[in-house]
Nucleic acid binder design. Structure first.
Lengths: 219, 219
DNA sequence: CTAATGCTAGACTGGTAAGTATGATGCCTT
DNA sequence: AAGGCATCATACTTACCAGTCTAGCATTAG
C-alpha cells in the first residue's frame, strides 16, 4: 500500500535532477493520470480525495494545478479527446477500394470496444451531457464531426461507386458502428444480444456498396 | 392531471370518497411523477428532498412507499421502460411494403427526438450504466432487443427483397437511427452538425432496399 | 367516540465531500 | 548558506444528503 520511493533518494545526482518546469509538468501528469482512472471508473461524482490518493499526490497539490474539480474534469476530457482524435484514419487508407476502405475504418472503430478507457469515456461524456453540455459538444465537434466528414469526403470522391447522399451515408455507417459499441460494451448488451463484429461489418459493406450501385451508370 | 376513475367499490359518500388503496396508489403516482422530473433533469445524484418537494409530498411518505433511493430509481426506470416499450411497431405496419415499412419505423424512432423524457432517459441509462448495469441490461433486453428482433423478422419474412443477414441489417438500421438521436439531442450535436431527419431516412431506405437487390435472384 | 392508518413538517444523525488553512519538509537557485 | 518554491500530511470549515424519528393532523372504519 505505502509507497515512498521518491523521498529518501540521494541528494544531488545530476543525472536525475529535474528543473522546475519538468517537476511541475510531471506532477500535473500524475494528477491527470489519477483523475483519468478515478473519473472513468466512478464518474464525475468521484471525490477529489480519491483522485489525489490515486495520483499519489496531496490534495493541495491538485488544487495548486487545477482551480477546482470542474477545471480538472474539463482538462482531462480535453486531453482524452485529443488522444483519441489522433487515432483517426490516415492518408494511406484513401487509396483503398471502397469495400476495403469501409471494412478498414469499421475495424478501427470497433476495435475501440476493447479499450476500457474509450468505453468509459463514451459513457461519461453521454452521462454528463446534461450537466456539462460543452463537453459533449466538444466531443461532437472534435471527434464525431471530423470523422464523419472524412468518411463522407471519401464516399463523395470515390469513382468506383456513386452515392446519392454521401453525408447521410457516412452518418449511417458511423451510427451503426458507434451504436454497436454503445450497445455491446457501454450498456453491457453483449451477453443479451451477442453478434460478432465481422457480421456487422460484412452487412455494412454489402449495404453501402450495393446502395451505391443505384447511381452507377458510367459504363 | 388525470383523476382515478377506479374507485368503484365505495361504500359511502360515493362522489368524493376514496378508499385506502386508491389513496395509496395516488400518492405513489405523485411520487413517481416527481421523481421522474427530478431524476431526468438532474440524474441519480438528485436529492430525495428535491424529489419529495417536486412531488408535493413529505419525505417520509416517499420512504413509506419506497425502501430507499435505489428502489425508487429502479421503479421509475422500470415504469419508463414499460411506457416507451408500449409505443412499438404495431401489427398493421407488417402489411406495408419494405420501403414504407422502413420509412415508417424510422419516423417513429426519430420522433422520440422531440420527447424530452425519452432523450433524458437515454442519457440517464447510459450515464448510469456503470453504476447500475442491471438497468442498462433491462433497457437492452426490454426495448432494444425486441425492437431489433421485430425489424429483423420483418426483413426475413419479406418476399419483395431478400436480405443475406437480416439480423445484422436490423442492427445497422437501428444503430443509425438511435445514434442519430444520441448525437443530435442527447449530445447536443444538432447545431454543430445539423441534418434533416428526412435525409437520413431516405438514405437508409435507399441503402436497405438496394442492398437487398443483391440476393434477389428469384427469377 | 375511538382506534387505526396515512400523511405532514421539521428536526436530527451520521457520513461524505469541496475547498481552505497550517505547518513542516525537501529541492533548486542565488 | 539562505530564501523561495512546490509539495506533503493533516485538520478544518461549510455544506449537502440519505435515512430516521417525533409529534401532530386528517380521514376512515368500527
Amino acid at each position: 500500500m505505502n509507497s515512498k520511493p521518491l523521498s529518501g533518494s540521494n541528494s544531488r545526482t545530476p543525472e536525475e535532477s529535474k528543473d522546475n518546469v519538468t517537476r511541475l509538468t510531471e506532477k500535473r501528469e500524475k494528477i491527470l493520470e489519477g483523475a483519468l482512472r478515478v473519473f472513468l471508473a466512478q464518474g464525475y461524482s468521484a471525490s477529489m480525495d480519491a483522485i489525489a490518493a490515486e495520483a499519489g499526490v496531496a490534495k493541495q497539490t491538485v488544487y495548486s494545478h487545477f482551480k477546482d474539480k470542474h477545471s480538472l474534469f474539463s482538462a482531462l476530457i480535453d486531453r482524452l479527446l485529443d488522444h483519441f482524435v489522433s487515432a483517426g484514419l490516415t492518408a494511406d487508407l484513401l487509396s483503398l477500394d471502397a469495400a476495403s476502405f469501409i471494412r478498414k475504418i469499421s475495424h478501427i472503430t470497433l476495435s475501440r470496444m476493447d479499450d476500457w478507457e474509450y468505453v468509459s469515456l463514451l459513457r461519461l461524456i453521454i452521462g454528463e451531457s446534461g450537466r456539462f453540455p460543452e463537453l459533449s459538444e466538444l466531443y461532437v465537434s472534435h471527434m464525431v464531426k471530423p470523422g464523419i466528414q472524412k468518411l463522407a469526403d471519401y464516399l463523395r470522391a470515390n469513382q468506383q461507386v456513386r452515392f446519392s447522399d454521401p453525408d447521410a451515408t457516412a452518418r449511417i455507417i458511423h451510427g451503426a458502428l458507434i451504436n454497436f459499441v454503445i450497445l455491446q460494451e457501454v450498456m453491457h448488451g453483449k451477453h443479451a444480444m451477442p453478434m460478432p463484429r465481422e457480421r456487422l461489418i460484412n452487412s455494412i459493406v454489402d449495404m453501402v456498396l450495393f446502395a451505391g450501385e443505384q447511381g452507377k451508370q458510367s459504363s
